[in-house]
Design a protein around this nucleic acid. Structure first.
Length: 152
DNA sequence: CGCGTACATAGCC
DNA sequence: GGCTATGTACGCG
């Protein structure tokens, strides 16, 4: 039986849900609702510190899996797109030897936004898009996260 | 193994 | 600003 343990971190524009199981992070999701904070663990701690600007790198244990290319894109992001920097879809695609569209594809399947800094990937024309979850204003989360790092 | 589907772009007018 | 072309990964039978 597999049951997620859910932690909640509140922030300025809503709440961040952290799904964990066996003490590793499986999924991160945004919601517009202001849920009460829940959980006091390494996950909530690091994200809180990140939101306060005290922490620049999230390194709690995670577990995710997908195809080799998606994983490659995600790893590249984590390793090469540090706090306060951005990259365009085109550049990222080029670095991974794939088509820009595929980058968007990989981002849309990204199970761990924030941990994998998909919000630092922007379109050449502007901020680009975002799909944190089903919420309609997902783009505002991207802006929020970018503004946290002093971008845009 | 082959086909259908989906993608948060880039580039040109 | 809006329209079009476009490559690749994934999942399924």
């Amino acid at each position: 039986m597999e049951r997620y343990q859910i932690s909640v971190v509140k922030c300025e524009i809503g709440s961040i849900l952290i799904y964990t199981s066996s003490n590793v992070c499986r999924k991160i999701e945004f919601t517009d609702e202001f849920l009460p904070s829940m959980g006091d663990n390494i996950f909530t701690k690091q994200i809180n510190e990140y939101l306060e600007g005290k922490r620049k790198i999230l390194d709690f244990p995670v577990a995710y899996s997908s195809g080799p290319v998606f994983t490659k894109v995600w790893n590249y992001l984590r390793e090469n797109v540090k706090y306060g920097t951005i990259i365009t879809y085109g550049e990222l695609a080029n670095a991974c030897g794939i088509n820009p569209r595929v980058v968007g594809y990989a981002m849309a399947f990204n199970p761990l936004p924030i941990y994998i800094p998909c919000h630092r990937v922007v379109s050449k024309k502007g901020i680009g898009g975002f799909t944190g979850s089903k919420i309609e204003n997902a783009i505002k989360w991207k802006k929020y996260l970018l503004s946290l790092e002093g971008l845009f």
